[in-house]
Design a protein around this nucleic acid. Structure first.
Lengths: 221, 221
DNA sequence: ATTACTAGCCGTCGAGTAT
DNA sequence: TATACTCGACGGCTAGTAA
């Protein structure tokens, strides 16, 4: 049996609570749950036992099953692997060039519908204007996924007959200033991202068009 | 291709950093790393692309590969699954019966070698005596793994020519009192666990032999 | 150099069925 | 009722090799 199949089976047993107590399962039901036959399910559980990953006690109606220390160890190993992967989701650094604000975002950030939500969520009033950073291909790739995925969302609203769409927001830092990267859901493709903050970033950080800057993003997905 | 095999491959690509940027891989090397042939590696990566989990750009010497949104989504899903499993590791509740202290642990807890380490790690001086809780089979199962696995370890030391062995410790709570469960590495099998605290638990919690109690353990493994 | 097709082998799958 | 053995079939594997 492949190692990743062992992980898969132990993961599912663990999810059913088999790490620290016996659970009762029937090979038929267990198999059906993960798209395999009663026969395969039976065979695999028996192999897991042989390999020392689980303990099985046969009942008249099924089995009592619990992970052994070796089984728990294996699951913890996999947990640690995924924790490693989570690190990639915790901080993403992008580098780019300050460009002039043509102002899609600047216009948005004066709209009460957005301002109020920002006040509500982050407890600050955004400086009326966005800092625009132009990214190259590699840096664009890094944020591609974040454009449409965040736990932090400014909801759409209507104002003067116009609809303003959803905006995904990610927290970030430039130098040591808290900033927020805004991704309007229905923005057309652009290689420029827009940053807001509670203050004038150009002034605070002494930024001018053409300067190279680095931005850290802390995605919440 | 089985779903758990997809997860396995994406996990490994993610670990190599392919979530937010292109990485360069060769089918031969990638396959060898995970115990498969160049041919299988090639076939599988090509299937992952077909299924929309990755983007591949062929180079003269290998491929540039990056997870697509669908691929990232899948990895995040798996991260969440393992977070679920972690919950089982965060708090374990056991129930048992107070029994008289015959005092293996009580004796230990007067030894300066242990006391000093406890002072160092937890910043308290243990009350000289342990509270003993007798567990039934089911509750013993829950802590079996913890007996020999903890990040918190009191190291062995020698005193008056005798060696005192390693002790694994887990934080816990009884009612709202912070307690510590001690598992001497070389303790013979027993259905009794020993608890220490900075105070007299019998007095503090009004406990007497034979009483049923509940103990929460917060394993650090 | 690399990827990926072909072909034959091997292992895994599950229907049937014994227990 | 269950689990688990047998065995025919199918899918996936890799060596060889083309591109």
């Amino acid at each position: 049996m492949k190692d990743y199949e062992i992980s898969f089976l132990l993961k599912n047993l663990a999810l059913k609570g088999a790490m620290f107590k016996y659970i009762t399962i029937k090979t038929g039901a267990f198999g059906a749950e993960y798209g395999m036959s009663q026969q395969s399910s039976s065979r695999k559980l028996s192999i897991l036992e042989e390999m020392g990953y689980i303990e099985r006690i046969q009942l008249k109606n099924g089995f009592k099953i619990k992970l052994t220390d070796k089984g728990i160890e294996k699951v913890i190993e996999d947990i640690k692997t995924y924790r490693e992967i989570e690190k990639f989701l915790q901080e993403i650094e992008v580098k780019g060039k300050i460009v002039g604000g043509t102002g899609e975002g600047s216009y948005y950030m004066t709209k009460a519908g957005y301002v109020n939500q920002i006040k509500e969520i982050f407890n600050f009033i955004p400086y009326p204007g966005t800092l625009n950073i132009e990214l190259d291909g590699e840096n664009l790739n890094k944020i591609e996924y974040l454009k449409l995925h965040s736990k932090i969302v400014l909801n759409e609203f209507s104002d003067e007959g116009r609809t303003f769409g959803k905006v995904y927001v990610h927290r970030g830092k430039m130098d040591h200033v808290d900033v927020y990267v805004i991704f309007p859901e229905r923005s057309h493709y652009r290689n420029v991202i827009e940053i807001i903050a509670d203050r004038n970033l150009r002034k605070e950080l002494g930024l001018m068009d053409g300067m190279e800057v680095s931005l850290k993003i802390f995605p919440e997905v």
